[in-house]
């Protein structure tokens, strides 16, 4: 299958999935709609990790940008009285973009473990700042009001998760996933493969590997921030522990490995599986949840290095 066809197929898949989710809204029980929303939010963070993984990089600190997105939205809501979800999303993306641009100058020269650990350090610094700063809500964090869209406020009786918010998240995520798929097939996406496979040759092709890494880093940060905004809008609350602490970043890496980097749909599928299993595990076996994660991660590493997505490829009988 040529790459161009794969891009078109993915586009079609995204369109179908979007339409299906929107059409299903009236049938979805509240918990299911919530799970879909949260999975799309988390999936965006993982989509950012997918970009980095295509570049041969893993960040153990995406919680940093997830937190920045969530906090940007919460702070804009709390202190500026902004309720429009579009404006809040832009605030999250822009803040994360600016921070990633600055930090990018430090991380772009690092690879492998050092890249992973530097990001871990950044996220822990933010965690420390958030947890110790009273105006930022300390360890308790913030609550966020029910968002509006372009002047339309949802029915106050309808609760937090309305069709407005659900539809917004679904459509926004679909557009972003489509865009990422396209960019991965563009020269900058291919440059990423070059960084992963052999940076020296890439440099001798006149491409700045560091520049390419910097761009990917910013893109991944923006995706994580958007995921943070969505999550906060859905949950209505943000704390340092649930966003910036390293265990949250570890969770995102787990989902990225579980899904694999074969397709932009993989992060969302894997995140949904993750959310569903967590819901049940925390209910029936709360003390075995991390064990389940750990064992799954080991099994994926040993037997399914391409993640869940490669399973689909295998079933179709193709070389994964």
């Amino acid at each position: 299958m040529t790459l161009l066809r794969r891009v078109r197929l993915t586009t079609a898949g995204i369109a179908v999935a979007t339409a299906a989710l929107l059409a299903l809204w009236p049938l979805l029980p509240a918990w299911a709609a919530h799970t879909v929303g949260v999975s799309l939010g988390g999936g965006l963070v993982v989509l950012g990790l997918l970009i980095l993984i295509r570049f041969g990089l893993v960040s153990f600190g995406q919680g940093l940008f997830f937190a920045i997105g969530g906090y940007a939205a919460a702070l804009a809501n709390q202190f500026l009285g902004i309720t429009d979800m579009l404006v809040l999303s832009v605030a999250g993306i822009a803040s994360a973009g600016a921070v990633a641009w600055a930090l990018g100058y430090i991380v772009r020269g690092h690879r492998g473990i050092f890249f992973a650990m530097l990001n871990l350090a950044f996220s822990m610094i933010l965690f420390g700042i958030l947890a110790k700063t009273v105006v930022l809500g300390s360890t308790d964090g913030f609550s966020v009001g029910v968002p509006t869209l372009l002047g339309f406020a949802p029915d106050p009786e309808a609760g937090r998760l309305t069709f407005m918010l659900f539809g917004y998240i679904v459509v926004f995520t679909a557009v972003v996933a489509w865009w990422v798929d396209r960019i991965l097939a563009s020269p900058i996406g291919y440059a990423g493969q070059g960084v992963r496979e052999n940076e020296l040759r890439l440099r001798y092709l006149g491409v700045s590997a560091r520049g390419a890494v910097h761009i990917a880093y910013i893109a991944a940060a923006k995706l994580a921030a958007l995921g943070g905004v969505f999550t906060v809008l859905l949950i209505g609350h943000v704390t340092p522990e649930d966003t910036a602490y390293w265990t949250k970043s570890g969770e995102f890496v787990f989902v990225a490995i579980l899904g694999g980097s074969g397709n932009v749909a993989a992060p969302f599928i894997a995140q949904t599986v993750f959310e569903l299993v967590r819901t049940f595990a925390l209910q029936y076996a709360p003390d075995a949840w991390q064990m389940l994660l750990g064992i799954t991660l080991l099994l994926v590493i040993l037997f399914l290095p391409g993640g869940l997505w490669s399973l689909a490829d295998r079933l179709r009988g193709r070389d994964a």
Partner: peptide, 14 residues
């Protein structure tokens, strides 16, 4: 990815 043949960055490379 090489300069003179490089499509714009939002266009598919292939």
């Amino acid at each position: 990815v090489f300069g003179h043949r490089r499509p714009p960055w939002w266009q598919p490379l292939v």
